[in-house]
Design a protein around this nucleic acid. Structure first.
Lengths: 419, 419
DNA sequence: CCATATAGTTCAGATTGAAAACTAATTGGA
DNA sequence: TCCAATTAGTTTTCAATCTGAACTATATGG
């Protein structure tokens, strides 16, 4: 069977101008942009070790001359600072230690259903100030919530001033779907918000980089990536009021083409399961969401804190309904994770939120479920609990701004040179 | 609640040399590498329009001077050729049309359970020669299969010689998990192969770029991307003997950290479902795999072609068992796609293989299942059938080599300059 | 036949990293 | 005490490569 020359169409739109763009052309100056980022990233990764220029040259593959020139720019802009000499008993001239400036910081903020939180993170990743207040935000008007958050942010600003830290920008995590470009909360069902423009900029008027809006589960996943165990590939499972997730692949957040990836809570784990708030049926959330667990365990209505205490007490007392509820949640979480592992080739899972609290009781049924539905696919040692507790989301929200500086310091240099 | 300066550990290993590498430093020469690729990609996307240097300059954002210099290198290496003048009735000097050379080609090859296939694809994406032979490869020794494939490849080599096409390399797709770095088939259960070293290089001794091994479902997905409808984000569902999948995100294949992503066939669609060959239970493959459908439809054992004919006849005759079998397959495929859409934010699906053949009968139950489990998430218009029929895998396998040239022509220039 | 328009080339200028030579600062042994 | 050895960092020269502007080449149309 031999065809003649068969024409296969190319994948592009036709139009008056047949050449279509997309990638920007490489300019000579791009090389420096990249190397500035490389050097900054290298300093960030080296963390406490405070590398010298010579060590950076060895680590990056750049020449000493190039590193010197790059570091000079970074120091001048204030992003990097020299921290005294390096003396390790070796022969030779000692080097100047370098670190990401501890006098530049980013404010991480979080709006959740039951509380507000604010933290100040310096470029080196140190949490320099942290404050949380309880706040029943469900159903509250966004303006009201932003007002409360504003006074909390003011505390962080004062703390920064006291520690002589200049605030570059902020990150604000919310439990919902956001449009990061236009700073709009598209939908936050658990707050009863729908298409709200928050104007987060107003929280930090003077910050040159503004305030970046982000999703809570995604931020928690990024916090775990940058300030937690630091594995490059994992699925973060966020069990707040809903069941969410953040997918980290190759040290990057996977958001999917439309920005809504990681909706672990709405994976179908039983085709004959009950209807879900999303309009579907048999979703994981109907078996393993906070509300579902409380209900199945027979915990009466009340505040989250009280109900959690009651549930933990019931589990400790080995009450059958509670034990069964958590067992089932673990089993169905196992089904969802088995499917996820198959589809996305996920090899590690980090449990956060409610699942972190219940981890001890969930783990047995979760592991046996994984073994049943995807034997050998996920090593139990790679199923861990978040180490950041309640600051993970905060750190991730701030970290996104810090990362953006590390990834394109040149843009920052430009801006600070103009100012 | 205010903590003092709390130290958060950075994500890095400690060691004797505290600076760790990873990204290569940017050199001045990188700019040209990138722009060579940009220009080549621009020519490739423009396809039949055969752009002039001036049009490329407008499209890429480079200056005419830079484009001229870049095109000169590409033409000298033989990757790009000038195809006469451009005369469109406008005033002014006409431009020289440019295209990816039709005298450079790549051989695409496919080993599947029931057949072998070979095709010759030129750089412009035209299938210049195509040949398929039936071959019962299940259980056959790899050496034997490679021998048969070799004689088929010889036909393609002869066809290339006749058309004065120089073969740059080849791509070989197999229905199994492969290690692309070391050219090893790790596992191809449907062929009964386990850790086989194929030495694909021997199929095309003289090709400078060698032969690249790849997975069949992934290659089919890439074929669909480059030579099909050309959507940038979709899930390709491959229903060959097993149920596989290929995930395309942002015009790139998503393979996951371990290279095994897209295993749609082993998503759990019913927690109480039957045991699966993978060791799990309730997998999609147990409801929608070829074997499962034939069995449920009551089609007796036999060759794939005969069974398919029988099934289609039974469906046309509206026999209840066949209708029900295909209905169920569609329903469970819907469950798997609903979960996939939620987890990976997939907005389009392309059905291939068996599912393309059965699409007409599958579609109703598949759509109603999607509507039940993920209402509104996947537009029915975005659920399409592969347009490439049996050459998709072939085109994808060859396309990977063509893409590698488009993405780094500089490396190719170097190699051809040395030779 | 020449004004106009478009394609493509040539050349000076700027940016930037590599390589090598040089200066700076420290240790250890004669 | 002082100098050789060693390591850190800077200066200088050079090559790669893009931009921009001027220039050449080739078409159309009145």
């Amino acid at each position: 069977m031999v065809n003649g020359s068969r024409k296969i169409s190319s994948n592009l739109q036709e139009g008056p101008t047949p050449v279509n763009e997309q990638a920007a052309p490489g300019r000579v100056g791009d090389v420096r942009r990249r190397n500035l980022s490389l050097v900054m990233d290298s300093i960030a990764r080296t963390g406490d070790a405070k590398p010298s220029r010579a060590q950076l040259a060895a680590g990056t593959g750049l020449t000493k001359a190039a590193v010197s020139s790059l570091v000079a720019d970074l120091v001048e802009s204030g992003l990097v600072s020299e921290v005294g000499l390096y003396r390790d008993g070796e022969r030779g001239r000692p080097g100047q230690g370098l670190e990401l400036s501890s006098r530049r910081g980013v404010v991480g903020m979080e709006i959740n259903v039951d509380y507000l939180a604010v933290g100040l993170v310096d470029l080196g990743g140190n949490l320099r100030f942290h404050s949380t207040v309880e706040s029943r935000n469900r159903g509250l008007a966004p303006e009201k919530v932003m007002e409360r958050l504003g006074s909390l942010a003011a505390e962080a600003i004062a703390a920064a001033a006291a520690a002589d830290i200049s605030i570059l920008g902020g990150g604000l995590a919310v439990p919902g779907l956001v449009d990061e470009q236009r700073n709009v909360v598209l939908s936050a069902p658990n707050l009863h918000w729908e298409h709200e423009e928050l104007n987060p900029r107003s929280l930090l008027e003077d910050a040159p980089l503004g305030v970046r809006l982000s999703n809570e589960a995604n931020s928690a996943a990024l916090g775990e990536l940058w300030y937690g165990k630091g594995q490059p590939d994992f699925l973060y499972v966020s069990g707040e009021v809903g069941v969410g997730g953040g997918v980290i692949i190759g040290s990057e957040l996977y958001t999917g083409p439309g920005g809504t990836a990681g909706e672990l809570g709405h994976i179908v784990v039983h085709p004959d399961g009950p209807a879900c708030s999303c309009g579907g049926a048999g979703c994981l959330e109907t078996f393993a969401g906070q509300e579902a667990i409380f209900e199945a365990a027979g915990i009466p209505e009340g505040s989250l804190g009280v109900r959690t205490e009651l549930l933990l007490a019931a589990l400790a007392a080995q009450e059958p309904r509670a034990t069964q509820a958590v067992h089932d949640a673990g089993r169905y979480l196992g089904v969802a994770l088995a499917s996820s592992a198959r589809l996305m080739d996920i090899e590690a899972v980090v449990l956060g939120g409610h699942f972190a609290v219940l981890a001890e009781w969930l783990r047995p049924s979760l592991l046996s479920s994984l073994e049943r539905y995807a034997p050998g696919l996920l090593d139990p040692a790679n199923l861990t609990v978040s180490v950041l507790e309640h600051s993970g989301t905060l750190l991730g929200a701030a970290g996104q701004v810090i990362r953006s500086v590390i990834e394109s310091p040149f843009e920052f240099l430009l801006a600070s040179k103009l100012a």
